[in-house]
Design a binder for these strands. Structure first.
Lengths: 126, 126
DNA sequence: GTTGACTCTGACGTCGACGTGAGGGTTTAG
DNA sequence: CTAAACCCTCACGTCGACGTCAGAGTCAAC
């Protein structure tokens, strides 16, 4: 499949897909014309990329992580100790981020659920 | 207290504190000299700001939210319906973000916990 | 009064993941 | 064969929360 189809399948812009390749996250084949040719595997890869990006990982780290994920479900492993250290650090970051999100959500909930004092309702005419 | 002290108490840079004021999140008094003068309340306010920023809220939204948080614990309320809509939207965003973080963490866990195949350990000499 | 720590206001720099054209080939349906 | 749709490579623009530096007042202690 070509880039437009992959973009539609994943919901990721063509620009982003080219960017991922530029960063070494994706390596599609090339037609003689220069057109990129993607496989079905790339669909899964793109989804993984988006998940890790959403978690705050940078493209450089993701580039290190991706080779450790082969097929869907049957992973290989994180061989290099350096990578394991990085992954543990990222894991801690993610956990901390989740806790911060929980705190923030509770803060918003407190405001949303707060009873509106009658005099405040009067004062604010919005 | 002056800006240096507040910075030390909150762990937030002076530049950031001035930025928050510029965005209407903080309104310290001013000495005749122009020096900013903060109260103890501002310490709590800054912590709230950081929590909401960490949750992905923009300074503009936070500026709308802050007036609804008076004292510590005893909130007022979200009066304007517009604000309630925004808050609900943000709440959904946060929940979605938490789920994405959970997915990403599981992905990392799978890699971290994956057994290292013997031949892979040989192949990669890192 | 003077030294050193502190603070002020601009104002430009940063970083990362893209957005957005410009200018020009390629493919495919009719 | 031609038009529409698709794709290519530069390369500059964006956005938000600050970092950083310059040049210049202020405050507290000695």
């Amino acid at each position: 499949m070509r880039i437009g189809a992959l973009s539609r399948l994943t919901g990721v812009s063509e620009r982003a897909l080219r960017y991922y390749e530029e960063q070494g996250l994706l390596s599609p084949l090339r037609r003689p014309s220069g057109y990129r040719e993607y496989t079905d595997d790339h669909v899964h890869t793109v989804r993984s990329i988006r998940t890790l990006l959403a978690a705050g990982l940078g493209t450089a780290t993701i580039a290190d992580v991706l080779p450790c994920m082969v097929d869907e479900g049957g992973q290989l492993a994180a061989a290099c100790p350096d990578l394991l250290v990085d992954l543990a650090r990222e894991r801690n970051r993610i956990t901390a981020a989740m806790e911060e999100l929980r705190d923030a959500r509770e803060m918003l909930d407190a405001i949303i659920a707060a009873p509106v004092p009658p005099e405040a309702a009067q004062a604010l005419d919005c």
